[in-house]
Every structure is written in structure tokens, then in C-alpha cells.
């Protein structure tokens, strides 16, 4: 392989892994809420936008140091996630799936409206987590922010895995996802855990938003397309499976990056969603999904 080709491959791989990490975070958020409620939550992408915007306010407008602003943003957006569940979904008169999904769509429109009010329509510039000193790795140009995205995503996934394996609340959440009725009989407060799932989804979205918006750009509707790609990643991996969400996110990010680099950048979204639909035709339950009780 000529050195140029290796450079290009390394570059595409790194940028694919970077966006893939964010897709994985979003896909985890979708899966968490699916396991708790069985629905698609279309506000997931807006959690991402909100994360970036809140961090911008705390960091730039309030002048908070990054180590304080970062966790504060996660907490605030987690709160917003819990609010979506408590205010929009809990009081819903219907338990019909399509109605609940549409409630999240309406909530997403409302959130975008609120963010447009609060932060305006113009794109904002969120500073990266550490000074931008590009360096080369295997011929690919890399910024520290790329490493932050991948590193923090790994940390987030590890923390989530620890939570689900080691804590009582995490185990209760898994029990509730497996069988809510039995879990309730065992004294698990399923309703409270549903709210907690939304808070976690908010936190995951916020993490993704704080990491990726310094690279892309920051505006009230940045989460729209990213949210859809995250949804696609969750479906690709097998909806509701955590390993599937991570694998689906990384695969989708890599495929998108290679497709845009080697095939066509104008039709990159056609490639991404085309692949997804093809996978679904062959494996209707996604790559890692099981043909379980619910689809």
C-alpha cells in the first residue's frame, strides 16, 4: 500500500471512530429507554444539542471552569431527561405505542423551540476540552478532541456497564427490563426506574453533545441528524441490546466515514441508511438483536 493510501485510511478510520463514538452514546440512550418503556424516544438528539448549549452557557457565559461545568451539564440535562418522562409521558392518557412515540416527537419539537428561544438560531463556538494542538498518528492528523471523544465515550460505557452489573439499582433496572411485572412483585419500583432511565439517556446525550459539538458546530438543531443516526445505530446493532448499541454506533460511524471518503460524500446518507435497510432485510432483528418477545 502506498503511504498516501495508508494515511487516508488512518484518517477515515479515526474520524469514523470519533463520530461512531457519539452514535454509540446516542444508541445507548435509545436502548435504555426502549428497555424501560418499549418506545423510541425522539428527544434523544435534543439531549445532545442541549448538552452542548448548556456547557456553552456554563463555560463561556458563566465562566465556570471545565471540571465544574462538565459534570454540572450532565446533571442538568439528566434532569431535563427525567422531566420529559415525568411531564410528557407519565400523564399520557393512552398507553398505545404510536401515541407515546409521537409524544416524544412533539416534546422534541418543543425542546427545539425552547432551545431556539434560549440560545438563538446562530451557531455558537464551543471551545474544545483542551487546547487544539494537532498531532500525527499513523499519518493521520488528529486533534486532542478526537481522543477526548473516544476516551470519554469508553469511560461512559464502562461506567454504565459497572452500574448495571455492580449496583442494586442497576440490577433492578435490568430486572424491570426483562419482566416488569415480576420485578414489581419483587419490590422494584419500576416507575421510578423509568424516570431514571430517561435521566441516564439525557446524561448520555449531554456527554455526546459536549464532546462532538466543538468538532462539528453548535446550534439548537445540531442533534436532529445526529439523533437519527444514533437511532439507526441502535437499530443496526439490535434495538435494546447495549453491546449492539455500541457495536452499531462504531460500525455506522466507520461505514459512513469510509463511504464518504472512498465512494461519494454527496450521497453519504444514502449509503448509511441504505446499508441499514439492507441489514434489516437480511436480519430483521439487527446484528446483535434476538427475536425476543418484543420487537
Amino acid at each position: 500500500m502506498p503511504p498516501d493510501a495508508i494515511n487516508a485510511l488512518a484518517q477515515y478510520t479515526l474520524s469514523g471512530l470519533t463520530t461512531g463514538s457519539v452514535y454509540a452514546l446516542l444508541a445507548l440512550g435509545y436502548s435504555l429507554i426502549f428497555n424501560a418503556t418499549g418506545i423510541v424516544n425522539f428527544t434523544q438528539g435534543d439531549f445532545l444539542s442541549l448538552g452542548g448549549l448548556v456547557l456553552y452557557s456554563l463555560l463561556v457565559s458563566q465562566g465556570l471552569p471545565i471540571f465544574a461545568a462538565f459534570p454540572a451539564t450532565i446533571l442538568l440535562v439528566a434532569l431535563a431527561g427525567a422531566l420529559v418522562e415525568r411531564v410528557c409521558l407519565r400523564p399520557a392518557r393512552s398507553r398505545q405505542m404510536i401515541i407515546l412515540i409521537f409524544i416524544t416527537m412533539a416534546a422534541s419539537t418543543l425542546m427545539r423551540g425552547l432551545m431556539k428561544q434560549g440560545w438563538g438560531k446562530l451557531p455558537l463556538a464551543l471551545p474544545p476540552l483542551s487546547p487544539e494542538v494537532p498531532f500525527r498518528l499513523l499519518g493521520a492528523v488528529l486533534t486532542p478532541q478526537n481522543l477526548w471523544v473516544m476516551g470519554m465515550t469508553l469511560c461512559g460505557i464502562a461506567a454504565l456497564a459497572w452500574f448495571f452489573r455492580a449496583t442494586v439499582t442497576g440490577k433492578a433496572m435490568r430486572a424491570a427490563a426483562a419482566d416488569p411485572r415480576t420485578a414489581r412483585l419483587m419490590g422494584v419500583e419500576v416507575e421510578r426506574l423509568t424516570t431514571l432511565s430517561f435521566a441516564f439517556a439525557g446524561a448520555l446525550g449531554a456527554l455526546g453533545g459536549m464532546l462532538i459539538t466543538p468538532i462539528t458546530s453548535l446550534s439548537y438543531d445540531i442533534g436532529l441528524m445526529l439523533g437519527l443516526k444514533g437511532f439507526a445505530a441502535a437499530v443496526l446493532g439490535g434495538y435494546g441490546s447495549f453491546a449492539g448499541a455500541v457495536a452499531g454506533g462504531v460500525l455506522l460511524g466507520l461505514f459512513e466515514s469510509y463511504g464518504a471518503g472512498y465512494v461519494t460524500s454527496a450521497y453519504r446518507d444514502v449509503l448509511v441508511f441504505g446499508l441499514l435497510i439492507l441489514v434489516l432485510f437480511v436480519r430483521p432483528q439487527g446484528l446483535f438483536g434476538t427475536t425476543g418477545r418484543r420487537a
Binding site: 412515540i101 441508511f273 441499514l276 435497510i277 434489516l280 430483521p284 432483528q285 418484543r294
Partner: peptide, 14 residues
């Protein structure tokens, strides 16, 4: 369910 939602959304995006 969600797979049908995604497939039709994906078709529209394409």
C-alpha cells in the same frame, strides 16, 4: 415496531 419506523424513515431520508 421500531425497525419499521427506522426503515420507513431511512427510505424517506434516502
Amino acid at each position: 415496531g421500531n425497525y419499521l419506523v427506522m426503515a420507513t424513515l431511512g427510505f424517506n431520508l434516502i
